[in-house]
């Protein structure tokens, strides 16, 4: 099962430049044409499933607007 990830977009910073959109290996990023940021740009958003949390969008982002998360399995000891 591929790792499941997601991103959070800080709309104060995002300027809708789409550098992350073109580099996303899973093609799950697009501009949200229904929203405007305080600066007046359409912010980026996740479309559909498939984000693996690889972080390539954050490497491209000139504004450091993205926070990338990934779900990782963690062993938890259960008290008997």
């Amino acid at each position: 099962m591929p790792a499941k990830g997601w991103i959070e977009v800080n709309e104060v910073y995002c300027k809708g430049c789409e550098l992350c959109v073109s580099e996303c290996p899973q093609h799950v990023l697009a501009l949200d044409m229904g929203r405007l940021t305080p600066k007046g740009y359409h912010p980026v958003m996740l479309i559909g499933d498939g984000c693996t949390g690889c972080g390539i969008c954050a490497i491209m982002c000139p504004e450091a607007a993205l926070t990338v998360y990934r779900e990782t399995p963690q062993k938890v000891s259960v008290a008997a």
């Binding site: 499941k4 990830g5 800080n10 104060v12 910073y13 300027k15 809708g16 430049c17 789409e18 550098l19 600066k39 740009y41 949390g53 690889c54 972080g55 954050a58 490497i59 000139p62 504004e63 450091a64 607007a65 993205l66 926070t67 990338v68 998360y69 990934r70 779900e71 990782t72 399995p73 963690q74 062993k75 938890v76």
Partner: peptide, 25 residues
Amino acid sequence: TTLSAQIVYQRPQSLTEATMHYCPG
């Protein structure tokens, strides 16, 4: 095994909270 959220990337601390004046991209 449980699934927990791990941060892969977040805004570096050495940047202030100011928004940059640079053009998009």
